[in-house]
Amino acid sequence: MATSMPPRTPLPPLRVPGQPTGGPPPKKRRANESISTWRLTDRIGYFLMWAAGLLVVAIGLGIVGFMAIKGLQYLRPVLLTSHPQADLDQSKSGGFFDPLVGTVLLTVIGIAIATPIAVATAVWIVEYGRPTWLARVIDSGIEIIAGTPDIVLALFGLVLFQQGIFGWMSFRAEDGAVFGRSFLTAGAMMSLIALPMVFAATREGLQAVPAHVREASYGLGKTRAATIRRVLLPSVKSNISTGAALGMGRIAGDTAIVVVLLGASLRLDPEGGIFGILQGTGGTLTSYVYNNSPAGEGNAAQKAYAAAFVLLLIVIGLNFAVDAIARRGARANGIETSRLGGS
């Protein structure tokens, strides 16, 4: 850490006789801020700041490196394609094909529900937003949803979807009680996790559209609705995708809703075709990792590591997708977008 500070006494510039003037002069060390003049508390703080920065790097590289090592050590291609078996012996407990499909299904359902609602809400708030108090209340409402723990959403989903009118989303018992746990119900609750992210990204995009773009469209005689459809939505497409990718990352990584609302079962219910699967329970990679960790019943660390590695790849992939989308969108619009840390 200390080595990054320039030396306190600068070397005098090297002067060679006969050196041609012109051209770049010899680089000179400047007497920059020397922390030796700082107050003691500031110096301690400065040191701690470096420590914190390097610790972030160390933790990040540590986690990724560790998961990569463990993942590559235990991940076999066959794990991705074989069904899980209920067996305590790790060599017989099969792969995690079903959880993988579960993750994909749940993510798709969740984002498919979240995106239209989030975009509609963002469009309404930015383009109409009247009455103002309602817009503000809805804005805060989305903040509240964003701050609601996933486990609370899961319990809410359970009581909500056990109501009779949602019977078609899951199974009914003989006595008519609705089970409430299925891909559809879990996906619906997952959409609430993704919704704030899609909403925020869309709203940011809409607010960044300059007023003259709208005015030009109105000037051509287009109605407001047509302007939204033909001008605004296309121009915030990349924002919507960014938000959606972020939201999908969150859905794929969520466990609590899967455990409570999807049943966290090992296998999908293949009866009744695709809709039957959606009505049935299942698990995802997250619940698979949870159940195979020492905290769950499985206690199969190797399987847990392998599945966690795949999960991590999916989540990181979605995050890289965010970057790619943002970059493409920026090129299309000719705007520099700055994400975290960009100045």
Binding site: P10, K28, R30, A31, N32, E33, S34, T37
Partner: peptide
Amino acid sequence: IDDIEVTA
């Protein structure tokens, strides 16, 4: 001025 500590 390069030889003067910058805050000073």
